[in-house]
Each structure stands twice: as C-alpha cells, then as structure tokens.
Design a protein around this nucleic acid. Structure first.
Lengths: 181, 181
DNA sequence: TATCGCGTATGATATATGTCATGTCGGACT
DNA sequence: AGTCCGACATGACATATATCATACGCGATA
C-alpha cells in the first residue's frame, strides 16, 4: 500500500547527463563535495585505497542508484568513485539537490523509503554474514528470501559470502541427510 | 558542514511514551502496520522466526533508534519486535508520522541524512564481512576506522565477525612478523 | 587487601571451509 | 550437429579459524 509516492529520481530531471569512460574518476576521497550523482547507466564503484596499495570496494552503484548519498551532509567525499564500465550519470549541486528535496516532500519521502528498505535488507545481510557456518547462513537466507529460482544458487553463494563449492556441498548434504531444503 | 538540520526525532514530541517490560512484544510479523516507533531507552530486538524454531536477530535498536523504518511503506511488519530489556518507546501512527514529515522538510532531510550514513557504513561492513581471512578483514577495518582505542579490540572482533582469539592471534602475528599495526 | 569482571593473550585440537581440479548438464548461438 | 558458456556438482587437500581452556593485568568495588 504505497500511496502517492513520487520517485525521488525526478529530482534529477532537467539535469545534464555526463558520459564516463570506463576507469574515469568522478571524485576522489577528500575532494570537497560539490555534486550529488545519479547513475543512469553502467556502473560506478566506490572504493577506498588501503595502505598496501590495493583498493577496498565499498559499493558498486548501477542504473537508478544514487552515488555516495552520505556526502549530502559532509564536507568532503570519503572514498573514490571510479567508473567500472562506460557509464552515464546525472548530477546536481548539493545546494540544488537540497532545495529541490525540500520543495518536494513526496520525493523526500520516497528517498526515505528507498533508504529504509536498504537499511533493512543490509542489516539482515550483515547478520547472515556474521554467522560462522555455511549451514547457518543458508538457513537464515532461506528464511528471509525463500527458495531461489533455478540458476540463482550461484548468486546466493555470493550473497551469503560463501564459495560456490561450499554452498553446493551444503545443498548436497541436505538432499542426502534429513528432509530439509 | 551541516546546515540548520533539525533532528528528525522532534517528530515524536508530544507523543505518549510506552513502557515495555523485558520480553514484551511490540508487534509481530504479518501484523498490519499501525505505528512508527522511536526507542527512548532500553533495547528492542527485531527478529525473524526460522523454521527450526530459533530466531534470527536482524537488529537490536537502542535509545534514539527508529524501529522498523521500512514498515513506513509496507502493509504488514516483516519481523517480530521484542524488548530485550525493559524499555520505553514513543509511537506515532503511520499517517501522523507521514504528515509531520511532510510538514517539516528539515526533519525529513535529517532523516535522510541519518539513513544515508547508515547505508554507507553498513555497505562498508558488508564488504568487510565478505572477506575470507581475518587478516583481510582487519586490514579493511583499520583502513576505514583507524586504530581503535584501548579496550576496544574486543568490539572490533565482533564488528568484523571474527572470534576474539582469532583477532588477538592476528594481532600477535603482526607484532612479531613485519612492522605493521 | 581481597575479590570480581573484563579486556587481553596464547595453546591445543578438531573441523569446516577455501582452493584447485574436473566433470556433467542444458540452453543459446552458429 | 557442433561449440560455447554458465550453472550445477563433487573430490582431494591444505589450512585458517572456531572452540575450549587457561592465564595475566588492571580498574572497580567491597
């Protein structure tokens, strides 16, 4: 029962689109926050450089995702944004974004809804990932999502942070042993 | 640089407080969504009953936390809410909550900010938890948070989903071997 | 001063899981 | 029909980690 809930993405109408080649950098950590971004196509990764030179990927935003939402209230970006594929993004200065959000309560509400859902599902994912055994993680995942469709087990393995062989072994175990799964 | 950003919690002013005894149930899964809750004191757990009768804890909300924010746009609750300790909560019907949020753009913005920060930190946590080795998780955690204060290592272990002995062993290893940490 | 709780620390042992390898099956495309 | 690719599946093996146990130092408290 979702009432009149306009999509917050309409805030980005009228904004110019920017094309990014794969590997292009949108912003770097510690850059002053100027823009809010909406990914239109392709994918953009948020990553953090680590001491050993490697990068920790924090998120890969794809079409329809906002980028670094938390920067709305920060002075500087907290990580790097790099295009993983050729991509298009829309952008809006932070001030414009805030203004429009205030003028469009329904859009703000829709953004709140989007965030709330994310927070909820991420919390669940975290709890699953904190479980030690593959068996427990699978139980939890199934309790939350139900049985996946054919061809999706591989995605489940990724979701619960387990190697594919480990997952299939667990599935085999369940097929043999009791009656579950 | 956070501008005039009133706290979204002011939305709950004027609302009556409800006392909960430890173990009390605020709502159950599939109950129709009536109220939005703000935890004032104590802690309230969100959990999901699993097939084997045990409960998967999805979140433990404490003072200042909203409860089940995603229910704002849902017909029914998706999990059970049970007081983990004696607790006090404020509540507001969903309709009232929505109305007030629309009337107070600054509060809505503040809620968006709160959510955005949560989404961001949860994403980071998820990526850390997906790493296989304790060593990698620790590296990532340290890159994001810096060295913890004394007495906090035990919390780090919990954060990165690793047993305390495993963490201390890794720390010992680093003390011995190269020059890190 | 004694006791308690908590964070820190380390050892021994079992085992669950990752990694590497190999193979089957089915669908899509040529 | 043949080829390719991705999901499904399983074996062998090494090892990283959990678990259980024990112990130390320190601050709080009685």
């Amino acid at each position: 029962m979702i009432y009149v809930m306009s999509d917050w993405r309409i805030i980005f109408t009228d904004t110019r689109e920017h094309a990014l080649a794969r590997g292009a950098v949108l912003f770097r950590r510690d850059d002053p926050v100027r823009f809010m971004y909406l990914v239109q196509s392709g994918s953009v990764a948020l990553e953090r450089a680590m001491a050993d030179g490697t990068a920790l990927t924090l998120h890969v935003a794809t079409a329809g995702d906002a980028l670094a939402e938390a920067s709305l209230f920060a002075d500087t970006y907290h990580c790097d944004a790099v295009a993983r594929t050729d991509a298009r993004v829309a952008r809006l200065t932070r001030a414009d974004f805030l203004t429009r959000l205030k003028r469009m309560p329904d859009a703000a509400l829709s953004l709140i809804g989007t965030h709330a859902k994310q927070v909820q599902s991420q919390r669940a994912r975290i709890e699953i990932l904190r479980l030690r055994r593959v068996s427990d993680r699978l139980d939890a995942w199934l309790a939350l999502h139900g049985a996946p469709e054919k061809g999706q087990w591989v995605r489940v393995a990724d979701d619960i942070g387990v190697s594919q062989p480990a997952l299939y072994r667990e599935l085999a175990r369940r097929r043999r042993k009791p009656g579950a799964c």
